[in-house]
């Protein structure tokens, strides 16, 4: 029983740890998709975010500066995607694929130039994103162990839920949110009402890159302590799956991310237990669950009507 409580604590901890990067990226994906731009470049934007965050934090010793720079790095690549797809009407999937190629290439080339290795130097605990309740809960009894496990998570994890509330507010309670959603449904109507569709979409794509960059930074500044070429392995795509699962709503995407976070958490807990299950098979779980979840839910999802379609201004 004590063991169970302990494991449960670890499971909750691990779930939140894996959920946070996904949720940042998923909120980013929401912005882009809802405004009408398919962004599968999220994965690449996470990768540059992961690299930039770890690198800036390493040199400045300031995790929050690294965190923000990670967002900006993601945003820079989002800007490229936006220019190609919104301004020049490029195929959104191909542009996203290009980003997914380009961004890791840039990250690794730069890493080799700076660190003489494709990995960054591991961060000191002081340069990592801080844990908020370190030392508040002492170990000892099973329940205090449990609390300690659950609350030993990083500030970025708490922050993601704050950001979620803000994003939700922007989506449904502000002028920008209304217009942005309208641009994804009926851009021509927006143009006829004097709304600048291209600008609105560009802002949304940039926001998506910023949030994806933050998600990437979570992986290298909280979940682990350094950037490696294998830091971002499909999280961007899982985030997109979570968004589809969540019917293109941030609050729905959160549930999707928690589900995938839980799968990863289970992998950790089972992997460290005495159960003899192949690590490879355990690693497969999040992807298999993604497919199953898509089967169960995607049919009922309302896709923004103009999603994926370039909008050509009438001249």
């Amino acid at each position: 029983m004590d063991n169970f409580i302990n494991n449960l604590g670890i499971l909750i901890y691990a779930t939140l740890l894996y959920t946070a990067p996904l949720l940042y990226a998923a909120m980013g994906s929401c912005f882009s998709e809802v405004s009408g731009v398919v962004n599968i470049g999220i994965e690449g934007m996470m990768t540059v975010g992961a690299f930039t965050g770890a690198t800036v934090a390493y040199f400045t010793g300031n995790p929050w500066l690294g965190f923000v720079c990670a967002g900006l790095a993601g945003m820079a690549f989002a800007l490229l995607h936006g220019i190609a797809t919104i301004q020049f009407g490029a195929d959104q999937t191909i542009s996203g694929t290009a980003i997914n190629f380009l961004a890791p290439g840039v990250a690794i080339v730069t890493a080799k130039a700076i660190f003489n290795s494709s990995d960054t130097v591991p961060l000191d605990p002081s340069s990592k994103i801080p844990t908020l309740f370190a030392g508040v809960f002492s170990s000892g009894t099973p329940w205090s162990n449990f609390m300690k496990n659950v609350f030993s998570t990083y500030a970025s994890t708490y922050l993601v839920f704050v950001v979620l509330v803000v994003v939700w507010f922007v989506f449904y309670k502000t002028r920008f949110g209304l217009r942005m959603r309208a641009c994804g449904e009926h851009p021509l109507a927006c143009q006829s009402l004097g709304i600048n569709v291209h600008r609105t979409r560009m802002i949304c794509v940039c926001l998506s890159g910023f949030l994806a960059g933050l998600g990437g930074a979570c992986m290298t500044m909280a979940t682990s302590n350094q950037f490696r070429p294998t830091s971002i392995v499909g999280q961007g795509f899982i985030a997109i799956a979570a968004v589809i699962f969540g019917k293109f709503r941030p609050q729905g995407a959160m549930i999707g991310c928690l589900l995938f976070g839980l799968c990863s958490g289970l992998r950790v807990v089972i992997g460290s237990s005495s159960l003899n299950i192949s690590v490879q098979l355990l690693s497969m779980i999040p992807y298999v669950v993604t497919v199953i979840v898509l089967i169960l839910f995607v049919g009922k999802s309302h896709v923004p009507a103009a999603n994926g379609k370039p909008f050509v201004k009438t001249k």
């Binding site: 694929t97 290009a98 380009l102 290439g105 080799k112 494709s118």
Partner: peptide, 22 residues
Amino acid sequence: APSEVVNVIMGTVIFLIAISHI
């Protein structure tokens, strides 16, 4: 020299092909 520069080149190439109609 980092061999990943090839990825940078190729990523740029498809990105440009995607917008090559300009």
